[in-house]
Write a protein that binds this DNA or RNA. Structure first.
Lengths: 157, 157
DNA sequence: AGATGAAATGTTATATCATAACAACCCCGA
DNA sequence: TCGGGGTTGTTATGATATAACATTTCATCT
């Protein structure tokens, strides 16, 4: 079972456990989990939706942690590079990773009605893209899988 | 067999046939295939790679067809909406459709070495995203499938 | 042919997303 | 203490995209 689904869940505990996991990973890998980076991850975890870099920057600024774009972009770069967050290409926005620890290409389902977003577990090498790539002799390094539509709550019954 | 693959092909004929197909489709659907739109599609078809909106704008400008961003964006909007081109989200760029006629969600393989790009045929409802969506009760409207990696020509042997 | 309304275009301005470049700082190990 | 890598602060700018409104074109109806 993924850390969260479209259904409601214990937000506070999902957030603190993700923070702990990130902290541990940084210790293990000797990465600097600095205040800006920590705050950026907290901000992303606070929402189950994608936030633009400038949204995050505004929230960082509200905490007194920097007001110029590179501050936010650098923190996001760190989070994405280390698997704590992903960029949602379709939205030019960022979201906390739902399966931290493992590095992976994410697959997203984005609700166009309520902006909620969930990350599904998939293996890009295995799906249709993987098959097409194999057929074409193409070697996949990274994959983007993003679906837009209606989540169960917003879907007309 | 798709209209083109990573392998070489008859560029001129692939281009003229795509233009003819677009022309026919516009006639059938009573769409206005205006000079700007026609030129934008020609420009996209001239390359097997994704072009940024401003690249296209520059080429339109060179033909005396407009120099302000909305000119390019409106032409691209038309082409995308009617299935003659796609936006590659990962690149914020646009590419001619390889399977015009059918409306579909595209799947791309993008070579990070030579910038070539091919569009594979897939059914988003069927793949891993489709399965995840079904499991989650999510209704997919559109899907983005994009892989970056190395094409056969650029792949080390 | 002339009227008319929708669609397309031209143009200016501005919003939004992202990075280059360089100086300053901080921590840690030699 | 010195030096060096990594992080941060800051300014400036580049790249992508759209809002808003005036004007023109064009299909269609009369």
């Amino acid at each position: 079972m993924p850390p969260f689904e479209f259904q409601s869940h214990d937000h506070a505990s999902c957030m603190t456990s993700a923070m702990r996991a990130a902290e541990q990973h940084c210790l293990d890998a000797k990465l600097q989990f600095t205040p800006v980076r920590r705050a950026a991850l907290e901000i992303l975890l606070s929402e189950h939706k994608a936030l633009g870099a400038y949204d995050i920057l505004a929230k960082l600024d509200a905490r007194g942690l920097g007001s110029a774009p590179p501050v936010a972009y650098r923190a996001l770069e760190f989070l994405v590079k280390n698997g704590f967050a992903h960029k949602v290409e379709k939205l030019n926005a960022y979201v906390a990773c739902a399966h931290p620890g493992e590095t992976h290409d994410p697959a997203f389902m984005i609700c166009t009605s309520c902006d909620s977003i969930v990350e599904a577990a998939t293996d890009p090498q295995a799906g249709q893209l993987g098959r097409a790539a194999k057929a074409a002799g193409f070697e996949i390094n990274t994959a983007v899988l993003e679906a837009e539509g209606l989540c169960p709550s917003c879907k007309p019954t």
